[in-house]
Design a protein around this nucleic acid. Sequence first.
DNA 1: CACCAGGTTGACC
DNA 2: GGTCAACATGGT
Length: 223
Amino acid sequence: MRKNSGNNGPILNIKHGILCNVYDLLLNELGPQYWWPAQTPFEVVVGAMLTQQTKWTNVEKAICGLKAQGLLEVQALAEADSALIEELVKCCGFYRQKASRIKAIAGFFAENDVDTVFSMQVEDLRKTMLSLKGIGNETADSIVLYAAGKPKFVIDAYTTRMLKCIGIKGNYIELQGMFESSLPENVDIYKEYHALIVEYSKTFCGRKRCEECILKDLNKNGY
DNA sequence: CACCAGGTTGACC
DNA sequence: GGTCAACATGGT
């Protein structure tokens, strides 16, 4: 029998709970999303930077333009003309910042080699990404999960809002910890779950369809 | 025309 | 630890 050694709180790290139920519900209602829309790990990095505070449709245009110029290659982007990058990412907003930042990040990957960087341990990779200008918690975790394929749960504005709706609050690290301790440590599940939250939020929350929200029946349906 | 979008940073308390 | 303005274009 496992002792709870003076800890009055619930036993954590059990692989079930409301966050597992939400995952099942979203997957059943929306179907698998198979994210991230990108063809190479470096494209994920660039896309993750460009999508900050911006709609993905705008990012697609920018990615398309960069690709046409051969600038989705690490070395090429690192050496590209700043004014050209700015022009190509203008449609994503904050374009001067984003242009200089993706160029600098390309420089980092050029010097350190993409495969070498992405072969780091999860926490080391995360810290390394966070040390780059323009990469904060969410972007770092998106890169770790979707570009490097390592288990880190991504928390974004959609996730925070969805959790708030079902009565769960916390800062980035706390919310991330809840997902990671509730779910099996599995890259595919982390990817799929985050994608499902985005799809769910775009469909219901962003369009004021709260009355149709598929999460409002969480308790009623026995989840 | 006002408001928001898959954030991050640096300054300040 | 948390809060805030700045960064900027494009769609509803």
